[in-house]
């Protein structure tokens, strides 16, 4: 996920090192957990209680049922 800058030690090393240093200085303005290397690491899964899971599924089924009704109404308006 994290695409890094091209660094090829041994060729234009001093120039690249200068660029890297400038980037590193600039990056001090970011919070450490703002870096792509950090945000691309998934946060741990939250424990969901049985009650919460049931509630979420109930709401999901409710939303799907009402959506089907709206889509049915839309389709019947076309006739």
């Amino acid at each position: 996920m994290a695409e890094t800058h091209d660094t090829n030690p041994g060729t234009t090393e001093p120039k690249l090192r200068g660029k890297e240093r400038a980037n590193e200085e600039l990056v001090m303005f970011l919070e450490p957990d703002q870096l792509v290397a950090h945000t691309s690491v998934p946060v741990p899964r939250a424990p969901l209680s049985e009650r919460a899971r049931t509630g979420l599924w109930a709401l999901r089924v409710f939303v799907i049922l009402v959506s089907i009704m709206v889509i049915y109404t839309f389709a019947s308006q076309l006739k």
Partner: peptide, 14 residues
């Protein structure tokens, strides 16, 4: 330790 930086990181830090 500073991880590898991306184009996204440097633009955002600007």
């Amino acid at each position: 330790a500073l991880p590898p930086l991306t184009h996204e990181d440097t633009d955002r830090s600007t």
